[in-house]
Computed example of a mutant assay.
Amino acid sequence: MRGFEFCETMAGSFHLVDSPSDERPMSFTIRARSRGLLDFLRKPEVEIEGEIDAEGFADHRYLSGRLGLDVVRTGTLPYSFEFTANDGRRCAFAGRKTVRPGDLMTSMTVLPGVLVGDGGALIGEALLRFDLRSDLLRFLRSFRATR
């Protein structure tokens, strides 16, 4: 059975834990794909791949991971992906949108997250946003059925 795919961009800033006052730009663009509709209904998550750009830390680096889409049951949209930093270290991003029915506009567009190293040590913190004005139409147009 067919699945679906879409693209999304989140942008904002991050800082490393050893320099918390040094805020730097960060963004990621992903393509999310479900394996198939039946698989998605059993486990509402999609595979993601794309690019992270975290200035001076992970410049235009490939990422891959998962995005949970079980909003009705969990009230969250968890993002989890891995990438290689500029210095060759394997790192990961973990973030979660917490959806609040009384504040859908903000809760669906703000993504706080952390950057962690290979052993799980905290490397940095990030705050990203989905820009409704410039990205919403492109986001909606990116939805399509897949084989």
Rank of each mutant, 00 (worst) to 15 (best):
A58V: 03
A54L: 05
K97R: 15
R129K: 05
L69E: 10
T98E: 12
E82W: 11
E82G: 14
R96L: 10
L104W: 06
R73E: 14
F93K: 07
A54G: 12
P78Y: 10
F83E: 13
P78E: 14
P112M: 03
R61A: 13
G65Q: 05
I52F: 05
P112V: 03
T106Y: 07
E45I: 01
E47K: 07
T106C: 01
M108V: 02
N86F: 09
R100K: 13
G56R: 03
T98P: 00
E125S: 07
D118T: 04
R73T: 15
L69D: 03
G65E: 06
L67G: 04
Y62F: 14
G50C: 08
S64W: 11
A94I: 09
T76M: 10
A58G: 09
A121N: 08
L128I: 01
H60C: 08
R96A: 10
R90S: 15
L67H: 05
G119W: 00
T74I: 03
N86T: 09
L115P: 00
F57A: 00
L127H: 04
D118F: 05
F93R: 07
F81R: 12
L115F: 13
R73L: 08
P78W: 08
G113A: 08
E45L: 13
D70F: 10
D53Y: 02
E82Q: 13
R89W: 05
L127Y: 02
G124L: 04
A121Y: 00
T109H: 03
T74R: 07
V46A: 08
M105E: 11
T76W: 01
R100D: 14
Y62G: 01
P101K: 05
M105P: 00
P101W: 06
G56E: 02
L127C: 04
G119Y: 01
G50Y: 08
A58T: 04
E45R: 14
V99G: 02
E51N: 07
R100I: 11
F93C: 12
R66P: 00
L104F: 09
V114L: 09
D87S: 14
L128Q: 03
G102W: 10
R89S: 15
L69K: 10
R73K: 14
G113S: 06
N86G: 12
G119T: 09
D103H: 08
L104D: 05
G88T: 12
V72Y: 12
I48V: 15
E82K: 13
D87Y: 08
I48W: 01
E82C: 14
E51V: 15
G75I: 11
G50L: 07
R66E: 11
H60N: 12
P78C: 10
